[in-house]
């Protein structure tokens, strides 16, 4: 059995341990066996775990707060939030796609198949989709595409078409093109050939609006792209949603660590990314 630090008595997936929390409690702390964990480029890893029944109820845009193993001789003291990348209900698995940026994610990267990952979730407010929409536009940057990826599942289930504009440094870092390829068109825009420039992306969005292929906007991962979608969304009356990030502690709502500024009816207010979001109304977000 993997070393289990601290006092927790979480639900152990696959061991038939009774769930601690009664059924009306939607999220839980669970220990999930790692199924596979592979590098997909020099910085990003793809993690697949066996998930508990409560975890499997996760919706696109929601996240889990992960207790990452330590990458060094010291400890990690706070969890790290990661949004769900793919929900595989058939095999009862949940997938994450993350970029290694610091101690938490480098520690996470040390997990091997068979190890247990302690996750709290599912947490937060996910993406909403309106079944009357015919075609939506997804615009993401870098690892923000991991958060947007499950929209492809949502759109697929609702029979809604998607144009996914995937922005990255170079072709190596384009994510989720395979997932979006199944439900619509993929346009990769890159720094390496200058196609990721805001003016170029703006031209693509304007074309989609003109072709009436933009019933709603979704974005994550870049302040420039958020501001662009916000501006065009406002000008053309297109509803939109943005998935935000902020450093978290509890991930559950009480600590007020994860606040960001939003503007509603001309009034600025602080909201918690973990429970009021992470998905917010595009027009209410002030900056990423």
């Amino acid at each position: 059995m993997a070393h289990r630090p601290f006092a927790s008595a979480p639900y152990v997936v696959g061991k038939g341990a009774p769930a601690l929390a009664p059924t009306h409690i939607p999220a839980e702390e669970s220990l999930c066996p790692v199924v596979s964990h592979d590098w997909i480029n020099s910085e990003y890893k793809h993690l697949v775990v066996d998930a508990s029944p409560k975890a499997l109820a996760v919706k696109p845009g929601q996240f889990f707060n992960l207790l990452c193993p330590s990458p060094d001789a010291a400890e990690l003291w706070l969890r790290r939030p990661q949004s769900v990348y793919r929900i595989d209900r058939e095999n009862r698995r949940i997938e994450f796609l993350y970029k290694c940026v610091g101690r938490g994610t480098f520690g996470l990267a040390t997990l091997e198949p068979g190890d247990e990952l302690n996750m709290v979730g599912p947490l937060g407010v996910g993406f909403a989709i309106d079944r009357r929409w015919k075609h939506i536009v997804v615009l993401g940057r870098g690892v923000g595409l991991a958060t947007l990826a499950p929209i492809s599942q949502l759109a697929g289930e609702c029979g809604i078409g998607v144009t996914a504009i995937l922005s990255a440094r170079s072709a190596e870092f384009v994510m989720a093109d395979d997932l979006f390829g199944k439900v619509g068109d993929v346009i990769a825009v890159l720094d390496s050939d200058a196609t990721s420039a805001v003016e170029h992306v703006e031209a693509i969005l304007k074309r989609l609006i003109a072709q009436r292929q933009a019933d709603a906007f979704y974005t994550c991962g870049s302040n420039r792209l958020l501001q662009l979608m916000k501006r065009l969304g406002k000008a053309h009356g297109i509803p939109g949603q943005v998935a935000m990030e902020q450093v978290m502690a509890c991930g559950l709502g009480p600590c007020y660590v994860c606040v960001r500024t939003f503007e509603v009816d001309g009034k600025k207010e602080l909201r918690r990314v973990c429970i009021d979001g992470p998905v917010f109304d595009l027009q209410e977000a002030v900056g990423w």
Binding site: F6, A7, S8, A9, P10, L20, A21, E28, E29, L67, W77, L78, R79, N118, V120, A249, C250, G251, L252, P254, C255
Partner: peptide, 16 residues
């Protein structure tokens, strides 16, 4: 702090 680290731990402690 434990609530951040292991939210189920507080209940486990009562039982324990």
């Amino acid at each position: 702090y434990l609530i951040f680290r292991n939210p189920s731990g507080i209940i486990a402690i009562i039982d324990g």
